[in-house]
Simulated assay, not measured.
Amino acid sequence: MDTPAIATRRSIWSGVLIGVGVAAFVDETVFHQLLHWHHFYDKSTADVGLVSDGFFHAGGWLAIVVGLFLFADLQRRRAASGNRLWGGGFLGWGAFQLYDGLIQHKVFGLHQIRYHVDVLPYDVVWNVAGGAGVLIGLLLLRRAAQRSSTQPVA
């Protein structure tokens, strides 16, 4: 039998993985495929960029699948925490946005959100949205922790 602490961590991690995967899916689908603004790796040929997008897309789906397997196991055990799952989801999505916007775009220079335009407005919106996701996730996780600490033990 799992302890409540293990179920709590699994609920959070399930949400984080699903959140990261959804963020990657939306990024790759909207900005890479539909708008053609960039590839995951833009420092080479278009073919290399397309292959890098494939690996990126596969990684996003892998995160979703692993997160859903964790969630299914929690459901089977009747141990899933919706608030922790949602909190982890927002945290994962926001952390992905911030990592992508700050580390991949600025530190590593793998790609920019968009080329041949002033990127500052795009960077601000991208990173503020990511920061908002992290804050929402942390608030949801904090609320879930407060609720569980005030509930009587059976």
Rank of each mutant, 00 (worst) to 15 (best):
D2R: 03
A5Q: 15
I6V: 14
A7S: 15
R9C: 13
R10N: 10
R10E: 09
R10P: 07
I12H: 07
S14A: 13
S14H: 06
V16Q: 08
V16F: 03
V16R: 03
G19Q: 01
G19P: 11
V20K: 00
G21M: 11
V22E: 02
V22T: 13
V22Q: 11
V22Y: 04
A23Y: 11
A24V: 10
A24P: 01
F25I: 05
F25N: 10
V26C: 11
D27M: 08
D27C: 08
T29H: 04
T29Q: 09
T29K: 07
F31E: 09
H32D: 04
Q33L: 14
L34V: 15
L34D: 06
W37K: 03
H39G: 05
F40E: 05
D42P: 09
T45L: 12
T45H: 11
A46K: 00
D47F: 10
D47H: 03
V48G: 06
G49K: 02
L50S: 10
L50T: 15
L50P: 01
V51Q: 09
S52Y: 07
D53C: 12
D53M: 04
G54I: 10
G54R: 04
F55Y: 07
F56W: 01
F56I: 03
H57N: 09
H57Q: 06
G60P: 12
G60S: 09
G60F: 02
L62I: 07
A63N: 10
I64Y: 02
L68P: 06
L68M: 12
L70T: 09
L70F: 10
F71G: 08
A72V: 11
D73K: 00
L74I: 10
L74N: 07
Q75P: 07
Q75G: 08
A80F: 06
R84L: 14
L85Q: 04
G88I: 02
G89Y: 00
G89P: 00
G89E: 00
L91S: 02
W93H: 00
G94E: 12
G94F: 07
A95V: 15
A95W: 01
Q97M: 06
Q97A: 03
L98D: 13
Y99D: 05
Y99E: 08
Y99N: 14
D100R: 00
D100G: 05
G101P: 10
I103M: 11
I103Y: 11
Q104G: 04
H105D: 11
H105L: 10
H111M: 12
H111C: 10
I113D: 09
I113Q: 13
R114K: 14
Y115E: 11
V117P: 14
L120A: 06
L120Q: 10
P121F: 12
D123K: 02
D123Q: 09
V124P: 13
V124Y: 05
V124C: 09
V125D: 01
W126I: 08
A129Q: 08
G130W: 02
G130Q: 05
A132K: 00
G133R: 00
L135T: 11
L135K: 01
L135Y: 03
I136D: 01
L138N: 05
L139K: 05
L141G: 02
A145L: 06
A145S: 14
Q146G: 08
S148T: 15
S148Y: 00
S148R: 13
S149I: 15
T150P: 04
T150C: 11
T150E: 15
Q151S: 13
V153F: 07
A154C: 13
